[in-house]
Design a protein around this nucleic acid. Sequence first.
DNA 1: AATAGGTTTAGAATGATTCTAATCTAAATC
DNA 2: GATTTAGATTAGAATCATTCTAAACCTATT
Lengths: 143, 143
Amino acid sequence: MKSEHQNTSTPKELKQRLSAAGIQASAPRMAIAQYVWNTCSHPTAEEVKTEVEKTFPTVSLATVYNTLNLFVEKGLLKEVKEPGSPGTRYDCNTKPHFHFVDESSGEIMDLDPRVLRVVPDMSLLGKNFQITDIEVTLRGRKI
Amino acid sequence: MKSEHQNTSTPKELKQRLSAAGIQASAPRMAIAQYVWNTCSHPTAEEVKTEVEKTFPTVSLATVYNTLNLFVEKGLLKEVKEPGSPGTRYDCNTKPHFHFVDESSGEIMDLDPRVLRVVPDMSLLGKNFQITDIEVTLRGRKI
DNA sequence: AATAGGTTTAGAATGATTCTAATCTAAATC
DNA sequence: GATTTAGATTAGAATCATTCTAAACCTATT
């Protein structure tokens, strides 16, 4: 069961979302946002550059990294790193959800949060742990 | 609540464990195994090298990487990658357990599996997912 | 002790990411 | 609307993590 993404497509919506996060809009940022917020493929920086170049041919890799880092810092994007495969991937889905990684293809899929119930035992965990985020990755094979 | 590690310390035990995994023993491998299997600090390759150099000064970084990769491949060690911090870390604990990452220090701690109950809803997940591994990371602050 | 197979090594090479310093752009001021 | 200014973008250099290469080294076997 896959979960859905927000589809923020019009320039106006993009600009609003950037400015709501305290980010000033610009052509490269719009192009990058437009792509990363509408893909569920968890792309690498290199993949983002290749895609964005199609509509914005002069974009530089430095700008891609700057922008992705900025988006992560502002909570508009999440970093994902998979043991066994190199580099960082970017997840447009900042709502709580889980990942399934297909061990044969390496593909990362978002799972609906309802497929898994995670129940912390606070008495065991202790009062001195403040949890701000839970990340769950299932690994296996899709058949 | 922290979980405990196996403490495989004598040369004899180390050699047995390596050979049980189909790995032929050697001085650098013993030194590396001795260190990584007795630390709960989730060290990087660089940290392993620094530590191992104390007892085995000629060890090269290439050998550290070769050996850690070999151990991972043979299931004697697990890779851990944290979003926001660079490089790969190595976890000697191959039994099911969870991680807590302190967001202020970046420290990764092992948690006892009992602090969290993870309940997959197989009807929602669907029969076409074969799960071989579940990885859970809690992020937050220790106070 | 000669051989063969795997192991280690230093350093080069690669890949991912960040840094630098110059240039460009857009917002703010006159 | 021209000027200033702060911030954004760029190409390429620099850095960091990791892997590759090819020679030297061990260790088990003949």
